[in-house]
Design a protein around this nucleic acid. Structure first.
Lengths: 231, 231
DNA sequence: AATGAAACATACCAGTGGGTGTGTTTGCGC
DNA sequence: GCGCAAACACACCCACTGGTATGTTTCATT
């Protein structure tokens, strides 16, 4: 740790628990990016399956093929690794917001598509699974958690507001309130499926939730046309 | 561990990870019951706040006033302690099922009262908070988790079925389906409040959920009389 | 009062896991 | 091909924690 060791690229950076600040540093070499992502993904899998504290770095490294040296070159600590998983998840959710604007979909259909994609990732993407679990395993992550759920609620509320303006919703529907219930429903069903260790039933449970939710918020006209397009 | 050590009361019992099997053993002395409950409660608090793996027995013992000797006299291991917390929670939920049959309440009001009591415990009772968290922190607890959520769903479904038979619900309402959504809503909102570290807002969020749920399942007549009794 | 078991206290052990220091390889400019 | 830093490998340290062994106190019974 003497001044002659110009090892870590971000050695002088303040408030950066991660070695790289996403895009701020000089771009990592492709090999470095690959190993970083491998470690990050393996870590997310273990975090999602066993939680933060029950995950040992050795097991992560065994699965990722990396070593301690590679890990501590890319991440300052175990906690920094976890926060990097969360950051990657946040990034991917943000990317999703732009992709869901499928043409030819009204706001309500877009909401359904959005939730469906969320479900898909919660089932398949290890980053999404690990990140969400870390939100309540990691101490002092209330900020991140608030931003995470708040973001989801705002996105849903925005689509619902559009739907209301387009005349697709019944009278007296509060977009923000309904959005909170949708986020809570997804969170709750995910939690239950997780505890019962039956991830695959998540999609079925959410479908069930929609059959209950939609008739109470959408107009009969929208429901009729929607049911016509879905067996 | 020689055969001359007749120490543990349940030393010969099979499949009992806990030292006492609830009521099977000769009743513990009052002092023993007190220390056992103290350790159990302190453990539940720590489990609920920091999770299973992040909880050290030393910190639990420091808070409870007990010692290693007392702990390992009552519980076979850390995991057995955690399972005892879950068992205690299950017991308390079972006890609740008999108490909520308040006279003078129709099935729907009873459901509201039941959920309200659930919320109260999730906010105040450390056993309930610790137990629910342990359901997904503890490995190989899918069985317990399934029983836990399944029980809640069945209780809610039973009350909804009664309400349907009493003509309090709209046509086409599936009690079992709605019950699953209610359990998921409570679970989800609890999860979110937990992650954001704002437990007290749970009650408010559930109240909000009811204002959205009830109009879509209850008859207008029931809603009118209910709103009259609630400012 | 004596005795044996229940109920606790305390010192200690051993494995584990996060973290570090140092050595080695890879890639890039010149 | 050489120098230098990026990127990685490996050995090691040590604090912490679950668990144990053993000693000590409380209590019921006779």
């Amino acid at each position: 740790m003497s001044s002659t060791g110009p090892q870590r690229p971000g050695a002088g950076d303040r408030d950066a628990n991660d070695r790289d600040a996403g895009a701020g540093r000089a771009a990592l070499q492709p090999r470095a990016r690959a190993t970083r992502l491998a470690i990050l993904t393996a870590a997310a899998e273990h975090f999602g399956r066993n939680g933060y504290h029950a995950t040992s770095l050795d097991s992560v490294l065994a699965d990722s093929g990396g070593t301690k040296g590679a890990l501590y070159f890319h991440f300052a600590s175990k906690e920094a690794l976890a926060r990097a998983v969360i950051a990657e998840m946040v990034q991917r959710w943000a990317d999703l917001r732009g992709q869901v604007s499928h043409p030819g979909l009204d706001p309500l259909e877009a909401l359904l598509a959005l939730v469906d994609e969320v479900i898909r990732r919660l089932i398949e993407d290890p980053i999404a699974r690990g990140g969400t679990r870390l939100l309540n395993d990691l101490p002092r992550s209330a900020q991140d958690a608030g931003g995470h759920y708040g973001c989801g609620e705002r996105d849903a509320a925005a689509l619902l507001a559009e739907a209301a303006q387009a005349g697709l919703l019944r009278e007296g529907i509060d977009p923000a309130l309904v959005a909170r219930q949708i986020v809570a429903l997804v969170t709750g069903h995910r939690q239950i499926c997780d505890a019962v260790e039956d991830r695959l039933s998540l999609r079925q449970r959410i479908d069930e939730a929609w059959t209950f939710l939609l008739p109470s918020i959408a107009t009969d006209a929208w429901l009729a046309s929607w049911r016509a397009a879905h067996p």
